[in-house]
Nucleic acid binder design. Structure first.
Lengths: 235, 235
DNA sequence: TATAACACTTACAGTTATTGAAAGATTTAA
DNA sequence: TTAAATCTTTCAATAACTGTAAGTGTTATA
């Protein structure tokens, strides 16, 4: 869906080397991508997310915060496809990056066509990924966490939004605490359960304000479950 | 649009007298409205908005902040219909309230049916009011200020959202600075113009991040104008 | 070109929102 | 009854949003 012009896919390039950065930018611009470059690496992951890009190209060796950190944070806070481009060719670096959520790992120097192929491949892979989850008239914008129910709409805070996204996409089914941990904090390891509970309480209250009361039920010892329609029950 | 149950209209009652409050609540509950009562009057307008009600019933004589203040703030921050219910029957109070944006002004004691009639009337009047403004594929949720363009979505901060709402609903037409002042700060009187400019700059930057560059043009000495399609111009 | 009015940008500080930690209350299952 | 699990409330740290201030650009007209 678009207007006058086609909406270009937007790529954010995170690379400290000026020459390399310009080179990349020019390659992609020729291929009709819209490019944003990060040039200050103080709040990198935040800056990346602010651009709301369609894809991120990330160098691992950066001044300040490590690229791995950035990779983890970005993939934790959003689901944008992320390609790591680096001069390190250690196998364990590659595994580490992929573990942190990177979608691709390419080592420099990298042939232009190879890079372009990976990028368009990644974009295609993410294309279909629907923008909304909808169940029984409850509709959630996966990106902004705007929730639509009947005539109402409300923007959920990030954590509540993530919880809701999980619940909706597994509605009437159990979502385990581990799944929530992974989604909210990017790890399956033990995080104070209370943090999850507090956020769950907050979400319940928020849902109450738009009349989705009693929709989240607790599965003792397992997790939580969203009851999709009023007056329906399911174990 | 609804699921299992009908979505009730939600009314927030702001009344400090316990008896009166319960009375009102019971009247409306019998008529199948969902009711929330404000019982602490420290952050009243904020609490009202948090409930995202369909209608507000506001007593003017409250402990702490005056009802007029609350009226102004609420109508300034949202477009929820607001009915003032009070024991003051001075004409100038009525005019004052209506000036501050109140939609109805009823004096106590008020007959139940009269009240119900006004309420359902107000709700009907606001019903049609479309939830979204859309022009040329640019769609804005008037309530949450979530902006949709192509595959992208982004939540605008309140001020940017209000500016965008005005621009969209008068797209390709001049929106004067006075209109912005009224919308953002609820007054036509002189407010530091710079405040508007700063917010305008911020909006332009935000729009840039989703490729709506150069869409806001300045009409020197008058105001601003949103160009609805790329490559179109209009004075 | 000069100049004055108007518009824009950037940085900063006050305020508000969001968050996890902590501690205690409540519920549940056996 | 009791212990584990879950829930709730409060608090402080962090991040987001906002208007102010001060300086920089731009435009129209003489």
């Amino acid at each position: 869906m678009s207007k006058g012009g086609i909406i270009l896919k937007k790529i954010v390039i995170v690379e400290d080397d000026l020459f390399m950065r310009e080179e990349l930018a020019s390659i992609f611009m020729k291929e009709k991508y819209a490019i944003s470059c990060i040039t200050c690496f103080q709040h990198t992951s935040k800056d990346i997310l602010k651009e709301s890009p369609d894809l991120v190209i990330l160098d691992i060796n950066l001044p300040g915060a490590t690229g791995f950190e950035i990779c983890r944070t970005v993939k934790q806070k959003s689901s944008v496809p992320l390609l790591v481009l680096t001069s390190r060719d250690q196998m364990r670096d590659e595994l580490h990056a992929l573990n942190l959520g990177a979608d691709e790992y390419l080592t420099k120097p990298c042939h232009k066509d190879r890079l372009l192929a990976r990028v368009s491949n990644l974009l295609r892979r993410y294309e279909g990924r629907n923008h909304f989850v909808e169940v029984q008239g409850i509709r959630l914008d996966r990106k902004t966490y705007t929730l639509y129910v009947g005539e109402r709409s409300i923007v959920l805070p990030e954590n509540q939004g993530k919880i809701m996204e999980l619940l909706l996409s597994h509605s009437d089914d159990i979502v385990t605490k581990e799944m929530f941990f992974k989604k909210l904090w990017g790890t399956t390891e033990y995080i104070d359960e209370n943090a999850l509970q507090v956020n769950m309480t907050r979400l319940k209250k928020t849902l109450g304000s738009i009349f989705l009361n009693e929709r989240i039920i607790t599965i003792r010892g397992k997790g939580y479950c969203l009851v999709s329609s009023e007056g329906m029950k399911n174990d």
